[in-house]
Design a protein around this nucleic acid. Structure first.
Lengths: 125, 125
DNA sequence: GTGCATCAGATGCACAAGCATTAAATGTCA
DNA sequence: TGACATTTAATGCTTGTGCATCTGATGCAC
């Protein structure tokens, strides 16, 4: 790997970090201030509702998310504590838990969605 | 904003999150395991050494970094505790602190650099 | 000079993250 | 059936982060 290639790689990575952190930070602040939702909370809620499914297993919802298993588990716990999702047993596999959006959850998501899209539009191309 | 545009925006953002978190997590783990350096620690050390300057003010070094002021302050404190950088008063402006890489700091950076570049090359185009 | 805004950096605090571990249910194979 | 590995999700623990605040030093206007 040449020195020039290295430099480009590092520059690319730094740009990525800067961009990600700017957006994530701004997004988190806006969602928190205006809707009382953290970034990962919104993300989980968003994916749950947009899946079109009434209920999803934890594992299915976690799929494709950027969080570790433990962080995800706690995120859903926070959403549940806030009354935005409900959890129920899965009878087919009693290890698994179903997650469902509550009415409050859908309402909150609907409100927060605009903020989310607006911040993204502002930062990304 | 049309629905299609929205979808693209969200997809773009999710890809960015996924990519960033994969790289950051992997990078942090490798740097930590192999060299006892956290991601931000390496980043600060890297920028300090690559600046070509013998010493930099905290503020100058923080410039362009993705961290908040407090997080950056603590990062340098950790580096100092590890003996990788030194801090000294700036006589021109006694509010400011100079940061300098120590011999140990340069050595550690030199070792870690390869790991860093390798992980980046593996993940980024 | 005095007063006041501003700036550099450190710190108290609350919280979300990852790692390792745990508990219980399920799968597998003899 | 019984023993053992695997999977699903939760939890104890430590640590890094951002926000707000604090302490000093500097700049500026009067």
């Amino acid at each position: 790997m040449s020195g020039t290639e290295e430099r480009e790689l590092v520059t690319q990575w730094r740009d990525l970090m800067t961009c990600y952190n700017k957006v994530a930070c701004d997004l988190d602040r806006e969602l928190q201030d205006q809707h009382g939702l953290g970034l990962s909370e919104f993300e989980a809620l968003d994916r749950l509702i947009e899946s079109g499914q009434d209920k999803l297993r934890m594992h299915e919802l976690a799929e494709g998310m950027y969080l570790s298993q433990s962080a995800f588990s706690r995120t859903v716990a926070r959403l549940e504590r806030a009354g935005l999702v409900g959890r129920s047993m899965c009878m087919d596999d009693r290890r698994a838990m179903f997650v469902t959006a509550t009415e409050n959850g859908r309402a909150r998501h609907s409100e927060a969605r605009d903020t989310h899209r607006k911040v993204l539009a502002h930062h990304l191309s």
